[in-house]
Design a protein around this nucleic acid. Structure first.
Length: 335
DNA sequence: TGGGAAAACCGCCAGG
DNA sequence: AACCTGGCGGTTTTCC
């Protein structure tokens, strides 16, 4: 396995034909399960998928030689930290020791990769390694619920959300306890290749394509492949630009130049949900930063993101986020 | 918190 | 034959 050429962009979707290197950062005492999740999603060849590109995969570690893994066997990392310099996506699995700081060389390599535009992904207690780089400061992060309190106390500037499976901040993604790493890796595939491909990968893995677990998902960059000229992509862009206006299926279908029936069908195929459901979720997500930074009342904010009444805003907010808007504002209001 | 009207959703099917 | 399309209508969800 060779190191991919250097890329300055992180989103694979606009680099048809080129490669996208996924590198897992291994270390002594790592969990083979989380390494396995990454290999299953990104390293398996997928000749059955009609995609322009798929991922290449590598495992690296600070120190050469076999790494002792949980379970008492060794895993050989064929690359050193220099592999991070060519990575498009870096996956940090659960840390063996959540009390120790990672080595400076690791911290520096991760910062440099981030600076360069690489995407950083943590699974479980891997969030501690990302937190040590300072790159999570001010961001909401997910980790295993057992470690939420510890992460918060060790890194007070990181805002820990113990109730989500994963969080997507675009270039930095964190996920909760081990199995949530599957959800996050599939989410990444969904972002890079669309819901349809992600669903097929999930089906082949025999897992649910998308799990809510009754819990809130905060996804800040939810727009799937909005290729230019793609009717669904333009409708999505239009909707996000006009969230505050009343939007119904017929209107969006008109923007996309499709019949309402065809629009709904295509929308679900690329997005994974229905137009109405998606709209509600986008409106809720759009209101979160307002609750944190905009001093206006709850009713005004609900209206500002397009909910027809305060009641419906509160209703959907509670259902999706798990708190009332007021409770959310109380908890996360900017200091 | 409830319930009736309206909208959205989606399986089905016929036509291109 | 395999596929995409658009309308119908029964069921579910949202609105007020």
């Amino acid at each position: 396995m060779t190191t991919a050429p250097h890329h300055e962009t992180v989103s694979g979707r606009d680099r048809a034909g080129s490669s996208h290197e996924v590198v897992v950062l291994g270390y002594e005492g790592m969990s083979p399960f989380e390494l396995g999740v990454a290999t299953e999603v990104f390293a398996l060849p997928r000749p059955e998928l009609e995609v322009d590109w798929w991922y290449t995969f590598a495992l690296c570690a600070e120190r050469r030689g076999p790494l002792g893994a949980v379970g008492g066997f060794g895993i050989e990392a064929p690359h050193g930290l220099e592999a991070l310099a060519g990575a498009d996506t870096i996956i940090v699995p659960g840390s063996a020791d959540v009390h120790a700081d990672p080595p400076d060389a690791v911290v520096n390599a991760l910062r440099a990769a981030h600076q360069r535009g690489a995407r950083l992904v943590s699974i479980c207690s891997g969030a501690f390694v990302l937190a040590a780089t300072g790159l999570l400061d001010g961001l909401m992060a997910a980790t295993h619920w057992r470690y939420a309190a510890l992460l918060r106390s060790r890194f007070p500037r990181v805002r820990v959300d113990p109730d989500v499976l994963y969080l997507d901040h675009g270039q930095i993604l964190t996920s909760a306890g081990t199995a949530a790493g599957i959800d996050l890796c599939l989410h990444i595939v969904r972002r890079d290749h669309g819901a349809d491909i992600a669903n097929r990968v999930a089906r082949r893995m025999v897992v649910a394509p998308h799990r809510d677990g009754g819990q809130a998902q905060f996804i800040e960059q939810p727009v799937p492949a909005t290729g230019n000229g793609d009717p669904i992509g333009t409708a999505i862009a239009h909707a996000l630009d006009h969230l505050d206006e009343p939007l119904d299926v017929d209107a969006l279908a008109r923007v996309a130049h499709l019949s309402p029936r065809q629009f709904s069908r295509r929308f679900r195929a690329t997005t994974g949900t229905s137009p109405g459901r998606w709209l509600i979720e986008q409106r809720i997500h759009a209101s979160l930063p307002l609750l944190e930074h905009d001093a206006r009342g709850i009713e005004a904010l609900g209206q500002a993101v397009g909910f027809p009444s305060p009641a419906s805003y509160r209703q959907h907010f509670r259902e999706i986020v798990g708190l009332s808007p007021a409770a959310y504002r109380n908890r996360f209001r900017a200091a």
